[in-house]
Amino acid sequence: MDQSDEIVLVGCGNMGFALLEGWVGRAGIPAGRIHVIEPAQALRSRAAAVGATVHADAAELPQALRPRAVIIAVKPQVVRSMLCAYRRFGGKAAFVSIAAGVPISTFEATLGETAIIRAMPNMPASIGLGVIAAFANAHTDDGQMAYVNNLLAAVGAVHWLAEEKLVDAATAISGSGPAYLFHFIECLTEAGVAVGLSAETALALAKQTVEGAAALAGTSGFSPAELRHQVTSPNGTTAAALQVLTAEPGLSELMTRAVAAAHRRALDLAVA
């Protein structure tokens, strides 16, 4: 890896740190080649413990630095104010934003004609099982897309989208989706307690059932609908439960409404 393969990571909160760990632990990128800019001492120390080169401010970056990628992992509200500090990398580095709701036009207004990619990783990226929806602007070449794809793949599965507006739609599914599943586990646990199980046993059964079912859905050649039919015996216990879940308003309608609400909120939060 030569100097052109160095990475600048701006912000090292939960998602930024997940990326850092993925690059070092899974992608095999030498930690010292990753420059982390993080004003918070505790977060900076955490990145330094992994071996990254840490800085409190962009002004501390070496003048000779020529990163291949600049990853923006800060709060959406501060993106516009901090971009100027990285303008010198425009036209050379690929900029990757994981700041929710910030359109590519915001980056182009400051950085000019440069490769810019919007990416939306979700929470399981912290254990390498994330889903990342991504969109690249017209200034991103194939080599840059392939390089960024490898960086993002260190924390999960990457899905490239045809239009930027679809990033907000993907956010409502994969970005917010883990919360839907966590709530389902909560509800299934409460239902287990209601029929007599201890809270500890109900939680264990709920978590392991969701984990196993998700793994089966991900590896099976059958569709989710086909798998559901396989586990549903006529007039059996599962059929009785599904009659409740499909009664109006059924789970399908509730999920459609929930995702639509998340999508609307993503659009409302977009930073112009």
Rank of each mutant, 00 (worst) to 15 (best):
A153V: 01
G218K: 06
S176P: 08
A93K: 02
A270T: 14
L216V: 09
P121Y: 07
A191R: 12
R68A: 13
P103C: 12
I34A: 02
I71Y: 02
A266R: 00
A213D: 06
I117S: 00
L245H: 05
S198Q: 09
A154E: 03
L251V: 15
A213E: 12
H55I: 02
V102T: 13
T232F: 11
Y180R: 04
V195Y: 15
T171V: 07
A260Y: 10
V271W: 04
A170T: 00
S97Q: 12
V195K: 09
T238M: 07
Y86P: 04
T106L: 10
A162M: 12
A202S: 15
R26Q: 12
N149P: 07
P224G: 11
A169M: 05
L83A: 04
A225I: 09
V102M: 09
L205H: 11
L197P: 05
A100L: 04
H159E: 13
E113H: 14
A239H: 06
Q63Y: 13
A73H: 02
W23G: 02
S45W: 02
A213S: 15
N235P: 03
G196T: 11
G250M: 07
E253S: 12
A179C: 12
F182R: 11
S252I: 10
P30T: 06
M1R: 10
A133H: 01
A240G: 14
I104W: 02
A266Y: 01
T219E: 14
A240R: 08
A59E: 14
G177S: 12
T201C: 10
P178A: 06
A99C: 12
V167D: 01
E113N: 15
M1Y: 08
T237E: 10
I173R: 01
N150E: 14
C84K: 13
T238Q: 09
V74I: 15
N14P: 00
R264C: 09
A52P: 05
M120C: 05
H263C: 08
G11Q: 00
R66C: 11
V10Q: 01
V259S: 08
E163I: 05
A48N: 05
P178F: 03
S176V: 07
L267A: 13
I104K: 00
P62R: 10
V210F: 12
L61N: 08
L161V: 04
R265C: 05
L267S: 06
L203V: 05
V158F: 02
W160F: 15
G91W: 10
V231T: 07
E226V: 11
N137C: 14
I117Y: 00
T106F: 01
T246Y: 14
I117M: 12
D142M: 13
T246R: 14
V231P: 06
V36I: 07
E21A: 11
T171E: 01
Y147Q: 08
I98L: 02
V78A: 14
L111S: 03
S176L: 08
Q208L: 11
L129V: 04
A247L: 07
G16F: 01
T201K: 12
L227V: 05
S45I: 03
T114Y: 03
A133W: 00
I117A: 02
L216T: 13
V50W: 07
A48G: 13
A47Y: 01
D5S: 15
A262W: 03
F184Y: 14
N235A: 15
G91T: 13
